[in-house]
Design a protein around this nucleic acid. Sequence first.
DNA 1: CCGCAACTGCGAACGATGTTTGCAGTTTAA
DNA 2: TTAAACTGCAAACATCGTTCGCAGTTGCGG
Lengths: 191, 191
Amino acid sequence: MTAAIAIADTSGLAAVSMRAVAARLDTGAASLYRYLSSRDDLLDLMADRVAAELRPYPEPDGDWLDTLVRMARAQRAVHERHPWLFELSQRASAIGPEALAFFDACLKVMAPVQASFAAKFEAIGMMNGVAILFARKRTAGEALTFVGLDVTPYPHLLAAFSGPVSAPPATDLFERALRSLLRGLLTTDGA
Amino acid sequence: MTAAIAIADTSGLAAVSMRAVAARLDTGAASLYRYLSSRDDLLDLMADRVAAELRPYPEPDGDWLDTLVRMARAQRAVHERHPWLFELSQRASAIGPEALAFFDACLKVMAPVQASFAAKFEAIGMMNGVAILFARKRTAGEALTFVGLDVTPYPHLLAAFSGPVSAPPATDLFERALRSLLRGLLTTDGA
DNA sequence: CCGCAACTGCGAACGATGTTTGCAGTTTAA
DNA sequence: TTAAACTGCAAACATCGTTCGCAGTTGCGG
């Protein structure tokens, strides 16, 4: 449901209650059960609907690694647009047709790579993990800056914060990390 | 609370209700609020209690990469012992003293590495992500094997499953991935 | 030993949640 | 026209986290 996604985008996943969604649709909560079997169903639909934003998949032109990085960038963008997607991605049932299609497209890009299916599977999982991690980077940074914690028992943490505050921007840390990881995962000489 | 962790280990996080924990302690739900301010408090305490299992931290002997891999192995073991920890790790408030101590220990190991604090921060985050991903590998594998999905629209997925089922074990995929990632993240020549 | 203040445990109740039920109202088909 | 099927939805139920208020206990100054 588009209404549910709108609520999640503005107020978070917890605000997506059956009553809230129904109210946005000017109806009662019970009416939703004519179209959904449960709230989990709704969440799955939301996840798959949003996974459709990964389209169109890039054509595998040139280097497969470049193409994969491009797809990972799309994943990161989606996770930045819909922060709640992270909470859903851990649910096994959230793997819907769109997620499978993306998975399939990744495999297609990896076709020229000589590696086992298990390795490719792992690589796609890592790609997803990296995209999520970087999408949440800003949030995580704030989490450590929040007040009220005495850092004196952690000498190295203290030293790190005492140093120059703004580090060199480390441009494209995302891409560098992803590239080195995928290369290490999918080639034999990269160990 | 040890009781709450026991419930989560056997029945999942959702089963950790105030009433369930109280029942295990032969008391009423309201009594818990003499010691906890809310359920979130309880979850934070659980996360930190379990983070203590990462101790003792290895002494930084020899190569820093070896030491980090050892610490990541410990993380993976904890996540395999307590699968629910993953759900908690996304909550900012779950960063307690034990988590900070681990973070500090990582920074200590990284002391000889010449990289910005931002890069090290990112590297620790990735390390955590990789550990979680591999801890959940078996679950994820089952998720794709589950029945009821027609894979015909996904030709590359189908081809992958049609191939030899059991791939070469890919021993130490965990360590290879981690090593290539950390090296790429923390050194300048690894791009 | 008393009396009073502070603390502790907890049954009962409140609001909110996901879900089920039952019943009107409406559409469809014979 | 009429019976069957479908649709929307208010009301009710179970369960959740949390609060309230009251007994029972403890600690302490007189």
